[in-house]
Amino acid sequence: MKLPPFEYAAPATLKEAVALLASHGGEAKPLAGGQSLMPMMAFRIAQPSLLVDLRKLPDLKSIAIDKDGVRLGAMVRWRDIQDDKRLAQAHPLLQAAIAHVAHYQIRNRGTVGGSVCHADPAAEMPGIALTCDAEMTVMGKGGQRVIKAADFFLGALTTALQPDEILIEVKLPAWPAGRRFGFQEFARRRGDFAMAGIAVFYDPDAGGTASNAHVGVIGVGEKQRRLGKAEAAINGSTLDEAAIAKASAAASAEVEPQDDIHASAAYRRALTGTLLERALKSAAG
């Protein structure tokens, strides 16, 4: 399972990187942590003609936190997120989700940008980006543009990124102090891709009535997605037993799972509801 042949460059500037990508007519790929791309190349599912290694690019490795939210450089690694004590306040949902990503060694190299651009339907980071209305800043030949998460993820392993564009930053909107959240996923083994995962948050008012509910699901169906009907069931409720049951039933009804080698569609449908129920209970608790 040796890698197919390719050219390799590790440019020092974004501009060079973009130019290199453009020069290979869609056959070049950026290389971030390589923890998804390298296995695909080992199986020869991906055979890029050029890898543009982003490791030397400046300014992609920082986590910036201010009143507008959390800005994750594309080369921020999973362990950087786990180790950043500020995030416990600034974005606890992100940390809760990233705790489920892969294994120790992978977390030392796997990156936010790599995961978002790989867009695996079962991966945590794309799910969080979508659930949290993240904005992706990308750089192409024509300069920078910002793509909303809702427009970014197009399907399994498919994004709105152009072949000559590089994701440079993922911005998660600010996390208000009173926000409630939950993250639940279930995988066959620790670190495996989720059979289903749920990220949820909402903003309760003084009386505990929820608004601004966001529910995202991963690992079920063709892509990570928001569950609008479940969100509607949460908004305006006080998250009592009945409301939680209603929301999780809505979530189960809303997903479009398929049978695969790990689980039946019916199981994944039920699991989605169970995980939302548990996520909401942990959010309320």
């Binding site: 390589g34 923890q35 290694d53 490791r55 294994h103 120790y104 060694q105 030392n108 190299r109």
Partner: peptide, 25 residues
């Protein structure tokens, strides 16, 4: 393909899977 960990080495102190990293990196 980055699952078994037999190839784990330390790169700048971090444990990484050396099958998921290029020598040139």
């Amino acid at each position: 393909h980055g699952v078994c960990g037999a190839c784990t080495v330390l790169v700048n102190g971090d444990a990484v899977r050396s099958c998921l990293m290029l020598a040139v990196q």
